[in-house]
Amino acid sequence: MKKVIFPLLLGIFFLVVQTTWLTSFPIRRIRPDIVLILTLYLGISSPPISGGILAFILGYLMDLFSGNGFGLYAFSRPILFYGAQLFKDRIYLESVHSRSLFVFLFALAEGFLLLVLVKALNPEPLRNLYPLFFPVFLPQSLSTALLSSVLFPLFRKGSSLLYAQPGLGRGGKG
């Protein structure tokens, strides 16, 4: 239970920080998605069932405070979580660069997924949104990737202190 409650509380805290502190940055486009970093960390360290449910809940909470009316994060975050689960043993994630690249690629993938879903689900045809990928998603993905190099070791340290082993229950089934 501890392995679910702590990440959930941390996720809520991150969401609050993301909607308040991070929005007060002078450069508006550089706004790292720290909830995404947590979701990806859960993806490489949590058991698939409890971690997947956590990713879903975090996505649901993101949707509540977002101007997105469909609830797209509740859909995209579990996909990212299981994507991370799928690739965690195939990618070397011990170096700062590889971790940042991993987060960057996943952030970009989510950007694409959201664009496609927004275009597909909108009842009225939206104008071409794809050029906005560069001014909006690229800065966000880059800043998220950069911040992940700081947050991943902190998460690891935190989970080793809390659970007396690195990761949030690696290898378990839920």
Binding site: V16, T19, T23, M62, N68, Y73
Partner: peptide
């Protein structure tokens, strides 16, 4: 509070 994402 503000939107948690850059998109919306």
């Amino acid at each position: 509070g503000r939107d948690p994402s850059s998109w919306f």
